[in-house]
Every structure is written in C-alpha cells, then in structure tokens.
C-alpha cells in the first residue's frame, strides 16, 4: 500500500469472526496532508467490514474536525488499504468462515 502519511492499524486481535472490528488511525507524516490535522493523537473507532465504507468514516472524521475536507480522500484511502489487507488475510486464514 502507498505511504499516505496516515497509519491505520487493527486496535484488537482479529479472529475473522466479527464483521465489526476496532481500528486505530494516526498521522505519521503531517507533511503529506493538504490541511493541518487537528492534533496528532491516535483515533480509535469501530468499522463494520460488511456494512460500511472507508469513505463514510473518513467523512465523519472530517465532520468531527479531525481532518481538513481536502484530506478526506487520503484518509479514506488509508482506511481502505488496511481494510483490504484485513479481508485478504481473513480469506487466507479462515476461508471457511468467510
């Protein structure tokens, strides 16, 4: 995945069973963002792999003032890359469950 300067990681062990998982997002390199992020804390949230899209969450983060509107695509892409990796890993490790 391309280095967007925004890091997204699992905030819990993934056992492949739950559709909603906890993720943690923080800015590693503010210079890669167009706007100035509110603060460099780690933002933890729950994401439903089946019902939600990374764009929904990115927009909610912008609405909540964490990021500037001009960075919504970078934030969405960062979340999308991590979600894709989680789904790829689930397919490989727990093919039957999926």
């Amino acid at each position: 995945a391309e280095d967007t300067g925004v890091r997204v990681e699992l905030a819990e062990e993934d056992h492949g069973r739950k559709s909603s998982i906890a993720l943690r997002l923080w800015v590693e390199d503010p210079k890669k963002l167009k706007g100035k992020p509110k603060d460099n804390g780690a933002i933890e949230f729950t994401f439903d792999l089946e019902k939600e899209t990374p764009d929904d969450v990115a927009q909610e983060m912008v609405d909540s003032g964490f990021f500037h509107e001009s960075d919504v695509k970078i934030v969405a892409k960062s979340i999308r890359d991590r979600v894709a990796l989680i789904q790829w890993r689930r397919e490989r490790i727990w093919p039957m469950i999926q």
């Binding site: 890091r7 923080w26 590693e28 390199d29 603060d39 460099n40 804390g41 780690a42 933002i43 933890e44 949230f45 729950t46 929904d56 969450v57 909610e60 983060m61 609405d63 909540s64 003032g65 964490f66």
Partner: peptide
C-alpha cells in the same frame, strides 16, 4: 485520563489517545 471521546452525529464514537512515541515517525 488522556483519552477524549468524540461522537459523530451518525453515532460513531471516536476515541482519541496519545500516539506512543515509538509509533511517531521522526519528523
């Protein structure tokens, strides 16, 4: 505590905590 919580109007909770120093890329 150094955790703050923001709830978006759509209902999602965002919990903000300090990023561990070790995870911040050297600027």
């Amino acid at each position: 505590s150094s955790f703050t919580q923001v709830v978006h109007s759509a209902g999602r909770r965002f919990i903000v905590s300090p990023v561990p120093e070790s995870r911040l890329r050297e600027q």
